[in-house]
């Protein structure tokens, strides 16, 4: 039973991860690559410097030097920042950028699928083919939309508060949102539903960590497009994940 459930979740997660890799190539990845051309440049304070020349290698070199200066002033250690990409880090096992993305999507897909299956088991509400889409939608609400109210999906080069503060707020918001959605969706009592709404609202009343300086060299239009694209892509990911998990559960676990 344990092995079968875990396997079902694993398979559903891997399928959703492959799907996600394809979906990301449509819009999200091109926007990330576009934003990286601006990353590390000085925020567009001087209108005399046209941003359009960002592709010239000369201005890119300048950006690299500025990167170093910014990194020295930044509270974020170099390991988090983008310079790590070329110095200390590098993609695992010498894979291409695409393979790294595929691997990470598979791991994330399997992880989210196992979390969904685990919650469904502990709460004793099975994920089925019929209700899988709702499980997926709730997963998206808890992991993406609700945290995005405080910390919207950000492009490389966007200003942001201290990484650990954001990660902590993000995890806490997911836990609160998940618990709130459980009370709201799966509990019949009126009091539970009210408590659920309060739980969902709490992290936002507390407030997400925000950067002190919000200037950025990445154009705002790219950021807006990216936030919507990222949320839409993850919604598709979660709907596929919930439905596939429900299908596999119906098909192979009911015996």
């Amino acid at each position: 039973m344990i092995v079968k459930t875990l396997l079902a979740a694993l398979v559903a997660g891997l399928i959703a991860g492959v799907f996600m890799t394809g979906a990301q190539e449509l819009r999200v990845i091109p926007l990330i690559l576009h934003a990286e051309e601006f990353e590390g440049q000085e925020p567009a304070a001087d209108p005399a410097t046209p941003q359009a020349d960002h592709q010239h290698s000369s201005s890119f070199e300048g950006g690299k030097i500025l990167d170093g200066v910014l990194a020295a002033l930044s509270p974020i250690t170099p390991a988090y920042a983008h310079e790590g990409e070329h110095e200390e880090g590098g993609i695992m096992f010498g894979m291409s950028r695409f393979s790294g993305t595929l691997l990470a999507n598979l791991v994330a897909g399997a992880g989210f699928a196992l979390l969904l299956a685990g919650i469904s088991l502990v709460a004793n509400h099975p994920v089925t083919f019929a209700n899988g889409v709702y499980w997926g939608a709730c997963g998206w609400l808890a992991v993406h939309l609700l945290p995005a109210i405080g910390l919207p999906p950000e492009l490389p080069g966007f200003p942001a508060a201290e990484l650990q503060d954001r990660q902590l707020w993000w995890i806490a918001t997911i836990l609160f949102s998940g618990a709130g959605l459980y009370l709201l969706a799966l509990r019949p009592e009126l009091l539970a539903k009210i408590a659920g709404l309060v739980l969902i609202a709490l992290p936002h009343i507390y407030g997400a960590p925000q950067p002190l300086d919000i200037s950025s060299s990445v154009p705002a239009v790219l950021g807006a497009e990216f936030a919507v694209a990222a949320l839409a892509t993850t919604l598709a990911f979660w709907l596929v994940l919930g439905t596939v998990l429900g299908f596999i559960n119906d098909r192979f676990l009911k015996a």
Partner: peptide, 18 residues
């Protein structure tokens, strides 16, 4: 290393990243 491998995925999923 993990950050760089998963970089695009972290951004796409909206994980707080660097």
């Amino acid at each position: 290393t993990i950050h760089d491998t998963a970089h695009d995925v972290r951004h796409s999923f909206g994980f707080p990243c660097h």
